[in-house]
Design a protein around this nucleic acid. Structure first.
Lengths: 197, 197, 197, 197
DNA sequence: AATGCTCCAGCTGAGC
DNA sequence: GCTCAGCTGGAGCATT
């Protein structure tokens, strides 16, 4: 019996020890990688990037399609709530929020499955058209147009593409990152909470 | 000495006990309020509100001016990063991001303190003009204009005010909250990650 | 229709606004109380208390009976794991862990429902006996016995009561809290990880 | 100039993109490892281990010497607070807490650097003596002694070693882990909060 | 004093 | 329906 007991005890103990060691090793690897990530952010900060913004970018890049959709939905609803409460303070509704309202209105008016009313062709642009808008943004940038001169209307998917093209074309002096990429670059006086009385 | 010791011991103990009880009482109050908050969110959810969006709204409402400014700055930089990486996926730059770029460009071109180039009067609208835009949004809504017909250009502060006016005017059937305020109202097929090739 | 729409819109908006304000108000109250708690801890720290330990005390005080039981169970199992892995480093098993092992052994030996073997009467002490142990701890303290001279054996519930009596009796000089209540009081050289080769 | 601008822009963009991708890759690795850890815990749970206790064990194993010392100090102070508030509920003071009190008392009595009073030799056991205690725990276990029969007094460092030896010797039936290692094994009736009136 | 990091608790979503 | 694990957000702590 002594033999049996000893052996079984050892078995359970060995198993426990093995589990512990496996986890410890994995945790150490995880910790190392976390270190690397932290270092990378530190390096980015040293070069003038806004780490908070960078974190957001990373988050977005890692989103699945479903998560992105969910996020966009929440953002749109948030904007609608803000608009209804008069809290937009300067930032107009994004396209998703507008679209949401339009869709709700259409359904409201009856389920007669009415096609998009006017002659617009909302959301049905080909990849070529989108790309063309991006190229045009780039060339407009080269020709000195400013980012606020985006020719596409709100709600037009080419609007974002033009922005991308323009941004990707814009330059900077030397190796430096653009001023607009930095924090506090202009740190204007903190605005009063309510501009509109 | 026994007396002294006992007395002092009691003093320290009483103090510790008092501190403990004070904190426990406060923690209990805090817990109660947290309960109330949770209940309120549950109620909101029951009535069809998106609690996640509602939480955002609450957060914004509680922001100080400085915090709001900081948030807007980070948001703008994030958008610029996304634009430069071609990750805007449909959501064009907001006004703050555009403004940021323009400011950086101006400084770039030389500190000749150039005034806002064209005839625009960016950012210098009176409260009256802003209010007028809000009223116009409301009346446009009554006249059947849609939220995507906002007449003000991107970058114009009246754009947001018009949106507010329009939203605040829009109605719903019965006591119900508008469809656009609900989650999953249209839950379209989750889009592929890259629309633009 | 305009009337109806307007009215309903207002209703939904009012509801949203009301929800928001209710939550904001509650959150503000919560924040205030959190402030008070923080201040209390700061005060305690100022008087020499170890806030981390104090937090633990508060946590325990707020535990429900079920939570306390669960915690004790987890603690006991943790100790057993540590013992089996040779990681006890100086802290012997607590009574709960010993009891756990004994119970398991008994069941192991057969479900003959054997009564506690020897003449001990584990766990069946009256409140009076417990109180007596506490009083004895107090008087032993007055008579100069030291806290390490607890006469009750490990596993005896009176052991903890004697400790309580002794501690509650011990004094300090002046208004000051005892040295043993402070952090770093003796900060001995950080021990090497493995005392036992 | 166009060339310059384009090139520099590209440089900054490439840098940003590179930073983003580096972080994304690291985050993915981290996520994978986190998966592995989770799986390991799940496996442990499946075999009857208490994952919460296992987590604690892992935490301890990963502690540095300094962190361990700090933890022990906080634990000791917590116990002293509990004792003084009459909240020990059954768990007597651990050795560290006792030692702490004794040290404070000694200093109190004057810095005459008094040697440990009685004939004890606290804390000055050789590694051999400690190991001997461990072996004795193991053999005592084989001879049928129970874990509550630890012959070393509270405060004696050999006490923990004996416990380790005993635990490491104890067996179990078949491959199974001991009952005492499982949760809810005995789930006694949740005790009333105050046993002592 | 302000910032960044780490830890913890509380909330959310899944799963029996 | 309740529990439970995962996760996000906030709070404390250390640091500069």
């Amino acid at each position: 019996m002594l033999e049996r007991t000893e052996k079984n005890s050892r078995a359970a103990q060995q198993e426990l020890k093995s589990l512990r060691d496996r986890i410890v090793r994995l945790e150490e690897q995880k910790k190392e990688i976390a270190e690397d990530i932290k270092e990378t952010y530190a390096e980015a900060k040293g070069r003038g990037y806004d780490t908070k913004a960078l974190r957001q970018v990373v988050k977005r890049e890692m989103e699945t399609a479903a998560e992105a959709e969910k996020r966009r939905e929440t953002e749109a609803i948030t904007e609608l709530y803000l608009a209804n409460l008069g809290m937009l303070d300067g930032t107009p509704l994004g396209d998703a929020a507008r679209e949401r309202v339009v869709k709700a209105e259409e359904q409201d008016k009856g389920d007669d499955d009415a096609p998009p009313p006017s002659g617009e062709k909302r959301g049905i642009f080909t990849a070529e058209e989108i790309d063309e808008a991006r190229s045009r943004g780039a060339s407009d940038s080269r020709e000195g147009r400013r980012i606020i001169d985006n020719p596409f209307m709100a709600g037009d998917p080419r609007r974002a593409a033009w922005d991308e093209g323009h941004c990707q074309e814009r330059g900077s002096d030397g190796m430096d990152i653009p001023d607009s990429w930095r924090r506090k670059s202009k740190a204007v006086a903190p605005p009063e909470k309510d501009v509109q009385p």
